[in-house]
Design a protein around this nucleic acid. Structure first.
Lengths: 195, 195
DNA sequence: CGATTTTTTGAATCATATCAACGTACGTGG
DNA sequence: CCACGTACGTTGATATGATTCAAAAAATCG
């Protein structure tokens, strides 16, 4: 039993590869412990890492012109998080990424990732599949934001990620779903009244 | 001068590769002419192709429960379009993809793409970079939809894609930007009055 | 515990949608 | 190449989902 076992499983779910290659890929990552409220990415700094969550929770957010905090993404166990626009183009970030709980993560830095992808076709495939799924996931979210009301988006979230809402502060969930924390509170309250 | 030259350029902008490999990759694609209003993807059918636009324009959209038409994406020259969730998971589509103009495209089918990626590390890299950029692009759009008003999203669009709005029917642009065609009309009218 | 942060509640307001009606343009068949 | 029909865009009135503001209640944390 090793702390990186979930990541090993994650790799093998995406690409079949010999055990020694799995270990080689894992070795390209660094295990880190991040304290609650610690930032791993901040605006104006280039995102140097891609982060896989072994344990804990994170969120990314932007502060808009009016100073409002908008959650763009969150990540719990077995999810990735970064400012992808900053990371892939290696330009200054626009987002914050912060730990919501004390967390354990695996991080790869940009140069190491490039080198690793270059060195082994299967490692390249691994990252390609990850990027594809991220793109598909984002597209589902765009469809949801264009076609559904605030309450429907909330219902979808609860159905899609059972148990996850409990771990997120309500203002994080509300801003992720594109509504105010007050409005989410009213949606929830209406529901408990009904049932 | 060959009709596929823009695609050749597109490939080389992403991955450096010897000319014969570029030709090999291009050969995996089929050149097709698509008439205006022709559908290349429809709900309940699996998206068999990924489509690169050489000439013309497309849009993808979903019809929601109330029967409202929501544009999810559009594509002109040098863009890709598909129902990515259908294509990468090879499951039934939820979207329509239709030609807005008579168009010329290059299409690769799913099995050929898998084989081609498998056969050559550089081809795998090519698709990986495409997926990454798609993910990054979608994330920018999510940020925009969460943080900006209808008018700001319109202004951003005009600034980011100068000249493109002219080629799209207004209801396509409106639903892409997440507003009604009436509201977009009012935004536009207000602007011409002002200046 | 007290202090701070988060959530709830209600009232007023706002951004955007809906509805309806009319004007315009465009493409298709004769 | 005209004329008609259908699709598209505009405008104004009204409706509504969601935000804002304010303050109290509840939860969390050092």
């Amino acid at each position: 039993m090793n702390e990186t076992d979930p990541f090993k499983k994650h790799i093998l779910q995406r690409v079949a590869m010999p055990p020694e290659e799995v270990d080689e890929l894992i070795a390209a990552f660094t295990l880190k412990k991040i304290k609650k409220r610690q930032f791993i990415i901040q605006p104006d700094f280039v995102a140097r890492h891609r982060t896989y969550v072994l344990q804990g929770a994170f969120r990314s957010y932007v502060i808009d012109r009016e100073g409002v905090d908008n959650t763009i993404q969150f990540a719990i166990e077995d999810w990735w998080i970064s400012d992808i626009n900053s990371y892939i183009y290696q330009k200054p970030a626009t987002m914050f990424v912060v730990a919501l709980e004390d967390s354990h993560v695996l991080q790869i830095d940009y140069d190491t990732e490039q080198q690793v992808k270059q060195s082994n076709h299967r490692f390249e495939t691994f990252f390609r599949i990850g990027a594809e799924r991220t793109a598909a996931f984002h597209q589902r979210r765009i469809i949801s934001s264009l076609t559904r009301t605030a309450e429907e988006r909330y219902d979808d979230f609860i159905a899609t990620y059972p148990g996850v809402a409990q771990r997120l502060p309500q203002y994080v969930l509300a801003s992720y779903l594109g509504m105010t924390t007050q409005f989410l509170s009213k949606i929830r309250n209406k529901k408990t009244g009904k049932s």
